[in-house]
């Protein structure tokens, strides 16, 4: 219960930072997707189950802070990324930092790109393919740079608020 509360608080803080602080420090008008990065970090740390558990509230929070896309679109994308990255976790070397960082970049690229494509299908007016690719690339670079910090944060949460399920083999 305490772990759920801590993760929930972490997601709210990340969302507030994303919409209030990061827009003033953008590169080419694009901001890092902190919530997606946290989903990936938790999925890499604990596996697919935690990835899905974190992805749903994180995605819904993003949806509630958005205005022009249907409610649930981010959640759908985050669920896919959270599960996919968590399912790939057993195949990564446990002590490696490079592989998870690259996975964080790849997951962000797929997540942001997938969101762009879905919003193009469902929103009234869509962003161009070039814009989607540009946003996905910039968000990927951000994710790779911020991934070590996100991993440290999720490990800290895991250490102090461990998962109640004993096995984390995924």
């Amino acid at each position: 219960m305490a772990r759920a509360l801590v993760i929930g608080l972490l997601l709210v803080i990340a969302a507030l930072v994303e919409v209030s602080l990061l827009p003033v420090l953008t590169v080419s008008g694009f901001t890092p997707d902190l919530l997606l990065l946290l989903v990936i970090a938790f999925a890499l740390d604990d596996g697919a189950l935690t990835g899905v558990r974190v992805a749903l509230p994180a995605g819904l929070l993003t949806d509630l802070l958005s205005s022009t896309t249907p409610l649930g679109l981010s959640a759908l994308v985050y669920l896919g990324v959270g599960y996919g990255v968590g399912a790939a976790r057993p195949y990564l070397a446990p002590e490696s930092l490079t592989a998870p960082t690259l996975f964080a970049g790849a997951g962000t690229f797929l997540g942001v790109g997938g969101y762009g494509i879905l919003s193009a299908l469902l929103a009234r007016a869509s962003a161009s393919a070039l814009l989607v690719a540009e946003a996905a690339l910039v968000a990927t670079v951000y994710a790779i740079l911020l991934a070590p910090g996100a991993f440290a944060l999720t490990r800290y949460v895991d250490r102090h608020f461990p998962v109640e399920v004993p096995s984390t083999s995924g």
């Binding site: 919409v19 901001t31 993003t62 896309t69 981010s74 919003s119 968000a139």
Partner: peptide
Amino acid sequence: AQGASNFE
């Protein structure tokens, strides 16, 4: 605040 998505 600004939008939470890179596409809005």
